[in-house]
Design a protein around this nucleic acid. Structure first.
Lengths: 168, 168
DNA sequence: AGCGGTTTTGTAATATTATATCAATATTGG
DNA sequence: CCAATATTGATATAATATTACAAAACCGCT
């Protein structure tokens, strides 16, 4: 019983030695369920791009994904990647980090949400929060001004706990 | 006594008929004071780009600024604009809206801050908040996870009060 | 299996956003 | 005025993203 419901971590900063294969396989299985449920086609390209996004917990740029995909699919072009990214975004399987023009796997694709992201400027790793207190503060203040919230982008730059402990 | 200190609006949604010349002249005067205080040079190009950013309350893209600047300075090139934007950002005179790759004037340049932005997806206008409750929620949650906040990007998409009242 | 409509992918071209580099000019402090 | 520094000019190129149209794959139906 570690987390209060209203401040749950969707995808925490991973330990150096976590079983990352498990992150990937969980993400793929989730994606299969989400696609199935929506009648969306989780094609080979889309699956592979999702795996590439999940290669780490650091956001990946579109052209990095393209370079990697080209290694195994030499006819891949920018639209190949951008179409796959569009599909993955639409289905909530990845998030775009606006301040980095880069993409990161979503840790909880089975629930629709706008995440909040903690971005470590030292190691590049991103953690995702599904934090109702931040979301609430946003909606409350917006509401006071007569503004109806549709979505939000919350990206927090700083130093993660693990990097904070090491010498600069 | 309308605003509580911790939720002040730095730059509200403007009325259609506000005196916009006043927004611009205030911004320029502020910029002069800020530059003076910092020993920074508020050159003609920088001043003009700031005026162009302040042409409206909608974020402006870099190449739009370039096109406008070229009308009066035909040798302007991308670096002309990007250098001016860099100066204005460094000195807190404008903000970059990450989700739009665009720039908007800062309503309170004399106090250093990370703003929060309400972006109307109907009319394109942006309001800036300096909202301690959002900032506090962010810092609190980050702190619980051992994350040290350096800066944040908070961009809220939705419909402003005035657009919400008109027929879709 | 065959057909027709729809979605996905292939391919080429281009648009948009941003930076690197180095030379020339302007400004500042001494 | 000189020398150091900051700013601007000019060219090239990098990085990110989209448009357009044709070909192929897939799906539901018979």
């Amino acid at each position: 019983m570690a987390q209060a419901r209203n401040t749950n971590v969707i995808s925490a900063f991973p330990t150096r030695r976590h079983n990352h294969g498990r992150c990937v396989s969980t993400a793929i299985e989730s994606a299969e369920r989400v696609s199935e449920a929506r009648g969306a086609r989780f094609t080979a390209i889309r699956r592979r791009v999702l795996e590439l996004v999940w290669a780490s917990h650091e956001p990946v740029a579109a052209y990095e994904l393209l370079d990697r995909l080209k290694l195994e699919k030499s006819n891949a072009t920018p639209p190949t990647i951008y179409r796959a990214l569009e599909f993955l975004l639409e289905n909530g399987l990845i998030h775009r980090i606006e301040s980095l023009n880069a993409y990161v796997g979503c840790g909880n694709p089975e629930n629709e949400h706008n995440g909040q992201f903690l971005i470590c400027t030292r190691c590049g790793v991103v953690a995702e929060l599904g934090c109702d207190s931040i979301d609430g503060a946003v909606r409350e203040r917006a509401g006071e001004l007569g503004f109806t919230v549709e979505s939000h982008t919350v990206e927090i730059q700083g130093i993660c706990e693990s990097c904070g402990k090491t010498t600069r």
